[in-house]
């Protein structure tokens, strides 16, 4: 069914005043019967008390599937980073990508020094992220599987499907910035390398 993209602007008050300026209740533009006929399932969850998330706190510890009061503790918690707002490392925790290297030191400092309430906690974690990324990029060049900005950014999809791929872009307001963000560090690194090589050659020649 075709639906309107905008509504006609009638006013709901009898004397022509916009409804916000008079005490009248807004009228429904369609009756419940009309809505029920047009919208599949209209009103099926009409009763707020019968909605899944009502009430906000629904005390029912026996219905969750848990068969413990406190979970058995996962091995390996010693030395794992944790928020200082926690009493201890949680009984179950993720083990992906444990802290390592310089980025690990920065992140560990963020966890040990600052609570989640402190801006410094998050700034250090973001700084650690960037150090991690740069270190990983550099290390990848010493492997048989170096980082490849062409394949890893998915930029090839810009060229596929010809004109249809251009439809509906959301990033047109800021797309001039994106290459700077993505390619900028690579260009700076390449420039630094070129300058370094030139300086080395001059010294070697001199």
């Amino acid at each position: 069914m075709s639906q309107p993209t905008t509504r006609d602007r009638d006013t709901s008050s009898a004397d022509g005043l916009p409804i916000a300026y008079v005490p009248d209740r807004p009228r429904m533009r369609e009756t419940p019967e009309q809505l029920r006929a047009r919208i599949p399932g209209w009103g099926a969850d009409l009763d707020p008390a019968d909605r899944p998330s009502h009430p906000k706190l629904q005390y029912s510890p026996d219905s969750t599937g848990a068969h413990w009061r406190f979970p058995e503790r996962q091995a390996g918690a010693e030395g794992r980073e944790r928020s200082i707002e926690h009493a201890f490392v949680t009984p179950v925790f993720g083990t992906a990508q444990p802290l390592h290297g310089v980025s690990g030191m920065i992140r560990r400092l963020a966890y040990r020094r600052y609570s989640e309430a402190r801006f410094g906690h998050w700034l250090l974690l973001i700084f650690g992220d960037r150090v991690d990324a740069w270190g990983s990029h550099l290390r990848s060049f010493a492997t048989l599987h170096p980082d490849n900005p062409i394949t890893q950014t998915g930029i090839r999809s810009e060229l596929s499907a010809s004109g249809t791929m251009r439809r509906g872009r959301s990033d047109r307001r800021h797309h001039l910035l994106d290459p700077v963000i993505v390619a900028g560090p690579w260009v700076i690194a390449a420039g630094g390398l070129v300058l370094g090589v030139r300086r080395f050659r001059r010294r070697a020649a001199g």
Binding site: S53, K56, L57, Q58, Y59, S60, P61, T64, A66, F70, P71, A77, R80, E81, R82, S83, E85, H86, V89, T90, P91, V92, F93, G94, Y111, E116
Partner: peptide
């Protein structure tokens, strides 16, 4: 979790309480 706030579980995220 005992009160249905499954997305706010306190036993699974050592890195943050929020």
């Amino acid at each position: 979790c005992a009160r249905g706030l499954f997305s706010n579980c306190h036993n699974v995220n050592a890195n943050a309480t929020a």
